[in-house]
Write a protein that binds this DNA or RNA. Sequence first.
DNA 1: TGCCGATTCATTTTT
DNA 2: TGAATCGGCA
Length: 847
Amino acid sequence: MTLLPPVPGFDADTARPPIGATRPMGDPSAEPFGERSSLLDGLNPQQREAVTYRGPALLILAGAGSGKTRVLTHRIAGLLAAREAWPSQILAITFTNKAAAEMRERIAGIVGQASDGMWVSTFHSACVRILRREAEAFGFTSSFTIYDSADSKALVRRIVKQSEADVLGFTVGGVQSRISKLKNELIDPDGFARQSNASDPRDAMFLEMYRRYVRELQRANAFDFDDLIGQTVWLFRAFPDIAAKYQRRFRHVLVDEYQDTNHAQYALIRELTRGVEPQHVPADTRMEVDATGGIPGASLTVVGDSDQSIYAFRGADIRNITEFERDFPSARVIMLEQNYRSTGNILDAANAVIRNNFDRHDKKLWSADGPGTKITGFTGYSGHDEAQFVADEIHALHDSGVSFRDMAVFYRTNAQTRALEEILIRSAVPYRLIGGTKFYERAEIKDLLAYLMTTANPADELSTRRILNSPKRGLGPATETALWDYAQKHDVTFREAMRRASELGFGPKATRSITELAKLLDEASAALQPQPGGGPGATVGETVQRLVQGSAYLEALMKTGNPQDEARAENVEEFVNVAKEYDKTHPDGSLVEFLTEVALVAAADEIDDESGAVSLMTLHTAKGLEYDAVFITGVEEDLLPHRISAGEPGGPAEERRLFYVGITRARKRLYLTLAMSRAQFGETAVAMPSRFLQEIPGELIEWRQSPGDVTSRGGSRPRALNATGAWQGGDGGGRRPVGSEGYGTAGGYSRVTMRPSEASGGAASATPTSGAARGAPKRSWGNAITGAVRDNSGLVLERGDRIRHTDFGEGTVRAILGSEAKRIAEVDFDSAGRKKLLIKLAPIEKV
DNA sequence: TGCCGATTCATTTTT
DNA sequence: TGAATCGGCA
């Protein structure tokens, strides 16, 4: 878990302007960059200007890999080094906590301690900090709970059920996303009422549910993700004096990934950078005031690239960037187009793809470096086959000196990870899944978190109800409803209703269960406070321990004998350790802070740069990251672009940007892979190469196995490809009738026929391969790679042993690497080439 | 109340 | 394919 630094003390009115603040702005030749020219060393002219420009608004259009992080950090470091700003006057917004931590570190690396007190965080974290301070002003407490999407979904589910809205065709997901969209547009229930048609029963029903949802959150003293932004904006608008506090404090606001901000975030930025009205300026201020006695708005720097806007689905509005100059008429615009990341071929491909989006400024990335290696293309028969290629290639790259952590595999949908994981595991590729179902999303962990949430925030009904019967206490839906009815009728919280269980006429068993639970929670809540004897309140670790023991949660899991529950018990134990660890790393941390962090971890925050593992993630998660070698998998129609995007306005263009983002993550090696058939929920469906592939000039891609090579079932190639002749290789090996030459037998895969020209020059020499496949007999086959695994823990292999593999046929063990459970066999297969296999899991047996 | 099997359902991307 | 919900029975 990535942990945020402790929240520094904050009092806006003690934040005084630095001596240098009255220096005329917009004079880049002022001494900071004279004496500290190191800040500008190695920057190109555009980057220099982006670092030194001073003025109210600056838009940096930064193409992928153009060094924008460097520009941002140097810009901030410059402000600090020249004493133009105190650290506390700087607010920098990044997309992930990890990016924030990195930026903070890099700035500290330049100016040292002078950077303490800056706010460098995500939109969400920054808003939580503000809301925790100001919550009391508008009916919340500072220990409010943050509901993640699963929590809010649970709440919506209950509301939909109670309103019997499903008969009108409402789905939980639909209602949830509609509410989220409205919140991102800052439209509250009243606003919706105004714009909707009251006589339409569906609108009326939705309005009622929206109102209830908002009311329930308020009652539970909770915010959902969208509220964190929206409520902050609302707070600023409703309480100008509170807004003024932050407007006075933050004199320099910088926003990264501006193309992915939604309307609420845009509004937040506008509120923060608004000038302070004279009546909100303290009489004794030492800040610069204008003619009317007000304080001018903070300077705003935004960095973005409209070609990398990939979050329109969650409300991101490209107009925020395209209309920046309209919103801030005096804005300066600087373009960064030189790319320092990728090789020429990769950039050419990226440019060629993105050029097909017509509604964009023409912008072209260029590099001073050479073209580099060609892009490698591969078409598998199935998702497993594709995954096997990825696994083999990862080993080959690793053998040629690329470390695992410098490689990444991207995919469009999380569902694609299954085949990838199966193959990577048995091929002994160390990998790490970024995102997907996270540790904190597991049911047992969510249960523990719910215990903690209700301890920290007793008003949190949703969390309380979640744990009412877990572990099983014999308190079913009937009891829950009775408690809820009582709470409603007497206008008390659910927790209070639990305390009064004896008045509700439950059976003795239920009554005792409820009272005990209420007592446990109340005691845990009380223990959080500083103790009367003068002792400090309970730590996070202590609280977790108390709750786990008091609820017998772990015990219940351990005695079921169910192997899945064993895994759950392990997770519980791990969570206890995480909590204890938090105590150590955050001696002053509170339970509320711990819960905040857990709620706001982003997928990309999980990346551990030290781990020696290949990273697997969705294309969305990949934004902002870079790797030496990148595999983009599933480059197929209906997957990338995804089928659902076709129906949405701007959908296909957004998919193209997503592909563009993926391509531009690669520094040196890029692989584009696809499969001719893909398993999707049980059935196997035929897949077609993505239209995006044809947008890349043929000479940039070297196909190890092109779509033409693997068309099966009678050999006719997809129409689209015939029409354009896009696949170099002409008739290549593609039309070889299926069923010839050993097809379908024990199989093995080989690099299918190449054109003579390719075979002589390109593939073999230009790319590191394990080599063994070369010279193997030509062979075509069906969906031979199965992803089968087997428990081989007892199998002992030695060099020279003959083995048989379900997919690769027979082979000879060449070497044994690793030890114990991680023993790896390096095997020369007779027809499939050399592979590394995890002995414990690979589907092999001794012959 | 809780457990079991049966059935149905949905699978884009995420702070 | 697998998660999630449903209905019937103990």
